[in-house]
Design a protein around this nucleic acid. Structure first.
Lengths: 248, 248
DNA sequence: CGGCACTCTGTGAATCGTCTGAGAATCGGA
DNA sequence: TCCGATTCTCAGACGATTCACAGAGTGCCG
């Protein structure tokens, strides 16, 4: 089951109606805070823990439905912690954060089918989407949760990463995809450039806000080309996506 | 009978509709946990036991439909335990886990009766598939259970390990087969390289994600060669398999 | 109607991700 | 033990993607 949250998104719920609980375990508290904030905004209940010892303590009392776990913890081997967490909460899906230099690929370990990985530095939209995907597939979450976003005749499938408008396939690059997903998850709502930058680009992106304009331009070429436009500029405010004209 | 599970896979069920129960008996709890998790993700009900004494206790109260049994237990000879388990639950299929040094002939006798075994270190995809196979063949499970995966005109038989496209037989190596099976069990879903590594390669594989690219390349040569491609790259995200174009 | 701020988009360079050939190491069967 | 099959590493090539920069375009305000 999913219900509408105050701000018009859909809020994740368990079968029994309680909100989904997520435990964020990180090495740096700044990253944990950043993620926690984003997840809380999604309507999830969040606890953050810095280091393994605190994580275990929190897991016991908080009983999370999912865990975000940094592979590089200060006080404990992440895989050890994973084992202990799994003992505490068997079956919880885990989203692993892997450092850029930390043997990027050497992720294989005691992780099983249901888990996922995100490499640092990541974009919040990407990380949050992956966590949504994890919960969607785990039986703890709503069984009928959809992986398809639709606005007008524009369709985006998060699982296959395919986008089409009016039945025509559209190829998008990774960044274009994330941007469009963010827009489509917030239809008819103006999103400011800083907001978009924070959400779609990695937290350590140092570039100018002009990239957003650039990528909006790319998207328009691919999505609106010769059709009633769905991506609109609100001068001085930001961008929004909505179905064209009559189709309300 | 198999019914659709939340995430679009098929979930194993007994004739009476109750989920399949599996008892995992291992020497190390970390391995037991890993396997349990993977099996739970497949939709099975799982209990883990470390050592023979605990295994017997659990078997009595849990009444498993299948058992995963490590040959090297700390407190009891595995064969003794096997006898006791069989007394408790006659006819229950058993998947043996054997260490790399276990004598080949010792296993041969055991698996004669319809049981199976995997050698450590194993890939999860392989181990889980073997357990599925055992249950499929045991009378406890549904008689009509299918062992054939189909995507478009591509057909993979899990029992005979035969693969064909458009009726033409295709020879695959063991690793190629596991990779293709994983893709075909998740059609139209993008699978990331770390996800594939976790699932297809052994848990102690220390290599780089480049092997995935390599084996995708092998598979394409054998499966897509000169035909409408079914294996697709999602740059920066992963790979997915789907039927070509119109054939939905 | 002028001017300013904001937005759009072409160009091009640097970087990144993926593919693939070559060959070493290992496995397994005769 | 030998030989072919298989697995895996390494490195080069190539195309795709990302992004900065700059000039053109556009709307808004006085």
């Amino acid at each position: 089951m999913t219900i509408a949250s105050p701000h018009g998104r859909t809020q994740p719920r368990l079968d029994d109606g309680s909100p989904v609980r997520v435990l964020v375990v990180d090495a740096e508290s700044s990253l944990a805070d950043l993620l926690s904030l984003a997840l809380r905004y999604e309507g999830w209940e969040v606890r953050a823990a810095v280091g393994g010892a605190e994580a275990l303590r929190r897991a016991r009392e908080f009983r999370p439905d999912a865990v975000v776990l940094d592979m590089a913890l200060p006080d404990m081997d992440a895989l050890t912690l994973l084992g202990l967490l799994r003992q505490e909460r068997p079956g919880v899906p885990v989203l692993f954060l892997t450092g850029r230099d930390t043997a990027e690929d050497r992720v294989a370990g005691l992780t099983a089918g249901g888990d996922d990985h995100v490499a640092k530095p990541f974009g919040l939209e990407d990380a949050v989407a992956r966590l949504r995907g994890l919960l969607r597939r785990s039986r703890a979450a709503a069984p009928r949760a959809e992986s398809v976003l639709t606005v007008g005749d524009l369709v985006l499938d998060e699982d296959s990463r395919e986008v089409s408008r009016g039945g025509t396939e559209i190829h998008l690059t990774a960044t274009e995809f994330e941007l469009l997903r963010f827009l489509m998850r917030n239809p008819r709502r103006v999103l400011s450039k800083p907001q978009i930058l924070d959400r779609v680009w990695s937290y350590d992106f140092g570039g100018r806000a002009n990239v957003v304009e650039l990528y909006i331009s790319y998207l328009r070429r691919k999505i609106d080309a010769g059709r009633p436009p769905m991506i609109h500029t609100r001068r001085g405010a930001g961008y929004l996506i909505k179905p064209p004209a009559q189709a309300v």
